[in-house]
Simulated assay, not measured.
Amino acid sequence: MSFTLATWNINSVRLREPLVLKLLAEQGPDVLCLQECKSPVDKIPLEGFAELGYTHMVARGQKGYNGVAILSRLPIEEVSSQQFGGLDHARHIAGRLENGVTIHNFYVPAGGDKPNREINEKFGQKLDYLTDMRDWFSKEPPEKAILVGDLNIAPRADDVWDHKKMLKVVSHTPIEVDHLAQVQEAGNWVDVTRQDIPEGLLYSWWSYRAKDWDAADKGRRLDHIWATSDISASAHSSRVLRDARGWEKPSDHAPVFATFDL
């Protein structure tokens, strides 16, 4: 069985329903994982997705904030939804495909502006969330699993537009990178995107603040696709759909894709 998966922080699934429909119609991933849906589950606009063949969904939602959903052309059943970091937020959903692959969809807290938990509660919440992720995967080591989502950390020097300038900016600080590495190690996760694209600058997010995001190109790779080591070799064809950042009224994130032959 071969299937293509995409992950995308959509920044409001109701506001940007036309963009989701455009992606599904033009790119046709078998599974689309969305973050920051900003919608209760019963308000997610499913009719148009279903008309394109995406008749299956598992999701967690809340009004106006956070929210994660997995849309699928393939049958999928919910297997888990976790709360981490002491936050009552809709930031995780996991579903299992009929081939036994579990897909974890995460929206890790952004962490605010200051990389200091003593003066910025949100940064502490982010670190605690990652610590709880690590501990959960240590306790229940995943097998035959894929982890995707907006992890809000660009770990490598070539995952940001300027490594030195970004070292004190939330999303690329050494402590965040270390916490993310511990999550990765705990679950025996392989960074599929960098397995396929091992070298070079690679981004999935560009700020709304830039007058011309494309020309400035001050991006960060915040969106990730990982797989457990038992299936990571089956992954290929990774890519970032950069063009989507330039669509009308876009999300500030671009979708990330990978194909798995299982």
Rank of each mutant, 00 (worst) to 15 (best):
G28K: 15
G28E: 15
D30W: 08
D30S: 12
V31H: 04
V31R: 00
L34Y: 07
E36Q: 13
E36R: 11
E36V: 12
E47S: 14
E47C: 04
F49I: 04
A50T: 12
A50M: 11
G53Y: 12
Y54G: 04
Y54H: 04
G61C: 11
G61K: 07
G61M: 04
Q62E: 15
G64V: 03
G67F: 02
V68P: 08
A69T: 14
I70D: 02
I70N: 00
S72Y: 00
L74R: 13
I76D: 01
E78I: 06
S80G: 11
S81D: 13
Q82M: 07
Q82V: 10
Q83L: 14
F84A: 10
F84W: 15
H89I: 02
R91W: 06
H92W: 05
H92T: 07
I93S: 01
A94Y: 09
G95W: 00
G95V: 05
G100K: 06
G100R: 07
V101T: 14
I103H: 04
P109C: 03
A110G: 01
A110N: 14
A110S: 10
K114A: 04
N116V: 05
N116H: 09
I119Y: 08
E121S: 12
K122F: 04
F123K: 05
G124S: 03
Y129V: 05
